[in-house]
């Protein structure tokens, strides 16, 4: 049975074993600024992305900077 997590509110299969892989999988250049990630409501510092792994049903938020007032 495949394992799934929530990425930005959508249930998805995941193949990456770490957060950094997941970020890249979602079309984000992990070397660039202006991006942040939360795992189950807690912000994960960029420096920890490579060491952070996910477990089924985790909730991941991947955000970036957009226009705003």
């Amino acid at each position: 049975m495949s394992e799934t997590i929530f990425i930005n509110g959508e249930r998805k299969l995941f193949s990456s074993s770490t957060l950094i892989g997941l970020v890249e999988e979602n079309g984000v250049d992990s070397s660039k600024g202006g991006v942040a990630v939360a795992l189950n409501g807690e912000v994960v510092p960029r420096a920890d992305w490579a060491q952070t792994s996910m477990k089924p049903d985790d909730k991941v938020e991947i955000v970036h900077i957009v226009r705003g007032g």
Partner: peptide, 29 residues
């Protein structure tokens, strides 16, 4: 000022940070 939003496959990084980050004091809302 700028905002923080979920990345989506189609937006794929708007590039706003690259455009403004060096030149202005960015204030997130």
């Amino acid at each position: 000022t700028v905002a923080v939003r979920r990345v989506s496959q189609d937006s794929g990084g708007e590039g706003l940070y690259d455009l403004l980050g060096d030149r202005f004091h960015l204030l997130p809302n």
